[in-house]
Simulated assay, not measured.
Amino acid sequence: MPVFVLLLVMMLAEIAVIVAIGQAIGVLVTILLLVAVSVVGVAMLRRQGTRTLTAFADAVRSRRDPQPQMVDGMLVGVAAGLVLFPGFVSDVLALFLLFPPTRAIVRRRMLRRAEQRRPRQVIVVDSEVVQPEDDRPIVIESVREDRD
């Protein structure tokens, strides 16, 4: 239900902004401006998507925490959806998410909020590696102490 309401409000805002801009600068110029902003958005989307994917691969390869790159990838995906949604409001929001400095602000807030919501429970697993006899595969036996 809330997503439906959000989409409805977004559509109404987009229509209102398009009509207002159309009345101010003309219909043809408004349509050309919508197309131009979408083309710029798609070009930035390709570039930032490639950069984010490369940064993610580098983080995994160098065994660093890939969480920031994963959030960036998600934000670029949201920006892709916004670019496809016709209108000025969604395109401005998409460009906001595609610019690395502004995306970094959103990413930091999301990571901080996720850290605050993360459960503080720690599960300890006691385990022992048993060396195989002969050429059998290694068997790992473990016991979870938090279960009965």
Rank of each mutant, 00 (worst) to 15 (best):
L6Y: 08
L6M: 05
L6E: 06
L8Q: 03
V9P: 00
M10S: 04
M10Q: 03
M10R: 00
E14G: 01
I15D: 03
A16D: 01
A16I: 00
V17R: 00
I21L: 05
I21R: 00
A24C: 02
I25V: 03
I25C: 00
I25R: 00
G26V: 00
V27N: 05
V27R: 08
L28T: 06
L28H: 04
V29R: 13
I31C: 04
L33N: 05
V35R: 10
A36V: 06
A36N: 08
V37C: 10
S38A: 13
S38K: 09
V40D: 10
G41F: 06
G41Q: 07
G41D: 06
A43L: 13
R46C: 06
R46E: 12
G49R: 01
R51M: 13
R51Q: 15
L53M: 11
T54H: 12
F56A: 05
A57G: 09
D58M: 07
D58Q: 12
A59Y: 02
A59G: 04
V60K: 07
V60W: 07
R61L: 05
S62N: 10
R64H: 13
P66D: 05
Q67A: 11
Q69G: 06
M70K: 02
V71E: 05
V71Y: 03
D72E: 14
D72T: 09
D72G: 12
G73M: 06
L75R: 03
V76R: 02
G77N: 06
V78E: 03
A79C: 05
A79P: 03
V83K: 01
L84D: 00
F88Q: 01
F88W: 01
F88M: 01
S90D: 04
L93W: 03
L93K: 01
F96M: 10
L97R: 02
L97E: 03
L98A: 10
P100Y: 04
P101H: 03
R103S: 06
V106E: 08
V106I: 12
M110N: 03
L111K: 02
R113Y: 11
R113A: 15
Q116G: 15
R118Y: 07
R118P: 07
R120N: 14
Q121C: 12
Q121I: 15
Q121A: 15
V122I: 11
I123G: 07
S127F: 14
S127Y: 13
V129T: 13
V130S: 07
V130N: 08
D134S: 15
D135H: 14
D135G: 15
R136W: 15
R136F: 14
R136K: 15
V139W: 12
V139R: 14
I140G: 06
E141R: 14
E141C: 10
